[in-house]
Design a protein around this nucleic acid. Structure first.
Lengths: 190, 190
DNA sequence: CCTGCGCTAGGATGGCCGTACTAGTCAAGC
DNA sequence: GCTTGACTAGTACGGCCATCCTAGCGCAGG
C-alpha cells in the first residue's frame, strides 16, 4: 500500500514528539517504531525533519479537533464535565512521560524559519481546538464571548495539567484542578 | 569571584532551557551566553549536563517560589487578580518563544535515570509553588481544600497559558483566559 | 519476457555535541 | 619568591544525528 509506510512514520513521529519533543526526537527512533527504512524518510518527506514534524503535528491537531467536535452539547456545566472526562485519559498518559504533540512543536529547536513554520502549525491547531470548543459551548447556551473565554481557559487547563501531571508522575494535579474547575463552572453557569 | 562564573552559567542555562528545552539546549550556547570557558563546565559541574540543568531548574523554581510568596494576601478574588497580574509579564515573554524552565525539564531527553532525577526537580518546584499559593489563599480566607484546589488550577492555567501564547505569538490567549478566570472566581468566592 | 517506476533498503558522510584532558593564569600563604 | 590549589582556556575525541546516495525489489504495462 502506498500511504501505509508514510502513515506509520507520521504516527511514530507523533508518539516521539509527545515523549521527547522536537529536539529530543530522532529519526532512528521513528524508523525503529514505524519499521520503515532510512531511505523512506527523504522519499516521503523531501523536506526532512521539519516536514515530518510539521505533518505529524498537523495530523495530531486534526485528530484532537475531531474528538472535541464529537463532544455532546449540553448545559455549560455538563459540557465542562464531559470535556474533563474526555481529557482525563490523555492527561493520565502524561503522568507516564507523554505530552501534547502540538505543544511540543512550539519549542524552538532549529533555524528561525523552521521554528516559525512549526509555531504556525501549532497556532492553527490550537485555534481550531478553541473554535470547536467555542462552538460547542455556544450550542450549550453560552454567549459567544463567554464561550470563547471558557474555551481558551479549558485549553490552558488541559495543556497545564499535562505539564503538572508529567512532573508529578500522577494524575493527581489534574483531579484536583478538575474538581475546582467544575466547582467554578457550577457557581457561574447554573 | 568564586561563584561568579558558576552563577552566570546557571543563569544562561535557565535562559536556554526556557527557549530550547533540555534536548535543544547546547553547551556551546550556554558558554557563549555566559562567557565561560569550555573547561569550566566539568570544573563547576562534574555531573555534566544533567547536573547543570538540574541546578538551573532548581534555582528557577526557588526564584519563582519567592516571587509567589511575596504576593499580598487579600480576599480570594483580589488574590487571583494579583496572581494574574504578576504572571502576565512572564506569559508575555512566552509569546516571543520563551517558556517555563521547570516545565522544560519534565520532557525526557536522556537516560531514564537522569530523566527521573530531572522530573523530581520539577515536581519539587511545582509542589513548592502550589504550597506557597495554597498558603496565601488560605490566608486570604479560603478553606484549605478550596485553597489547594485553586492553587493547582492557577498553576495549570499559568503553564497552559505559556504554551498557548508561545504558539500564538501573542499574549491574547492569556488575556482571554484571565478574564474568564477572574469572572469564575468572582462568582464562586464573593 | 522485458522495461520503467514507485518504493524499500541500508550504508556512507559530514557536522555538531557532550565529554575529557592538558596547559596556563592568578592569588594567597608561608 | 615559591609553592599550592582553585579556576580559566583551549583543544582533542568519540558518538550520534540528519542527510544523502546507490542498489535492490515488486509490480504495472507492453
Amino acid at each position: 500500500m502506498a500511504g501505509d509506510t508514510r502513515d506509520r512514520m507520521i504516527e511514530a513521529t507523533v508518539d516521539a514528539l509527545r515523549r521527547r519533543g522536537v529536539a529530543g526526537m530522532s529519526f532512528t527512533e521513528v524508523l525503529r517504531e514505524s519499521g520503515a527504512a532510512r531511505g523512506a524518510i527523504y522519499h516521503h518527506f523531501p523536506g526532512g525533519k521539519g516536514q515530518l514534524v510539521a505533518e505529524a503535528a498537523a495530523r495530531n491537531g486534526q485528530d484532537v479537533r475531531a474528538t472535541l467536535a464529537a463532544l455532546p452539547a449540553a448545559d455549560p456545566v455538563g459540557f465542562v464535565a464531559s470535556f474533563l472526562a474526555l481529557i482525563r485519559p490523555v492527561v493520565e498518559c502524561s503522568a507516564t512521560g507523554s505530552g501534547c504533540a502540538v505543544a511540543a512543536v512550539t519549542i524552538a529547536s532549529g533555524e528561525p524559519a523552521e521554528n516559525a513554520s512549526l509555531r504556525e502549525v501549532a497556532a492553527t491547531a490550537f485555534t481550531a481546538w478553541a473554535d470547536t470548543l467555542t462552538e460547542r459551548l455556544t450550542v450549550s447556551g453560552l454567549t459567544p464571548d463567554d464561550a470563547a473565554g471558557l474555551a481558551t481557559t479549558l485549553l490552558a487547563l488541559l495543556e497545564g495539567a499535562q505539564v503538572l501531571c508529567r512532573a508529578a508522575g500522577s494524575a493527581e494535579p489534574f483531579d484536583r484542578m478538575a474538581d475546582t474547575a467544575l466547582d467554578l463552572a457550577r457557581s457561574r453557569y447554573s
